[in-house]
């Protein structure tokens, strides 16, 4: 995924987080990765991208950050990552990705997305000839998250 497309997702993330949570992220420079391991203790909302962009974008939250976000939304203490929490995070990932695709369509890059898949267990990606992995770290007052772009060749 080239950096221009990536920029749309990062911009959409900050817009949505500012509006919903008053939170702004600082993003690292995109880094290419040879392999990727989702370790336990994180919640990953993975969205498959179709159309002109093929691959997946994953929003990787550490568990405490995820719980804090859901607490802000519902105003009550949340102690564990359950279906309610996973679904709320999946919807946030869905909203961000939808907004990014809307702005990309204005540049005639047309895409679609599939419903979010929530991964809480260990998962590993390996780079190969057809798959390229890019990672962006995001930091904010509430904690950290990572973006993982797994791009498949057209």
């Amino acid at each position: 995924m080239n950096n221009k497309i990536l920029e749309h997702f990062l911009q959409a993330t900050n817009e949505v987080f500012q509006m919903m949570f008053d939170i702004e992220f600082d993003f690292s420079t995109p880094m290419e990765a040879k392999s990727l391991h989702y370790d336990e203790g994180h919640i990953c909302a993975e969205i498959a991208l179709l159309g002109d962009i093929k691959g997946t974008i994953t929003f990787k939250f550490n568990a405490d950050t995820a719980l804090d976000l859901v607490e802000i939304m519902c105003g009550m203490e949340i102690d564990e990552v359950d279906e309610f929490v996973k679904s709320a995070l999946g919807e946030i990932a869905n909203i961000i990705s939808g907004n990014a695709l809307t702005t990309l369509s204005q540049e005639e890059i047309i895409g679609d997305l599939e419903p979010p898949l929530i991964i809480t267990q260990s998962k590993k990606y390996e780079e190969n000839d057809n798959v390229h992995i890019t990672v962006v770290d995001a930091t904010s007052d509430i904690g950290t998250m990572n973006f993982v772009f797994v791009e498949k060749d057209q």
Partner: peptide, 14 residues
């Protein structure tokens, strides 16, 4: 219904 509530909450706020 837990999944539904989580999605509804995030959707509504946004």
């Amino acid at each position: 219904i837990q999944r539904f509530a989580g999605k509804l909450l995030a959707w509504l706020i946004n």
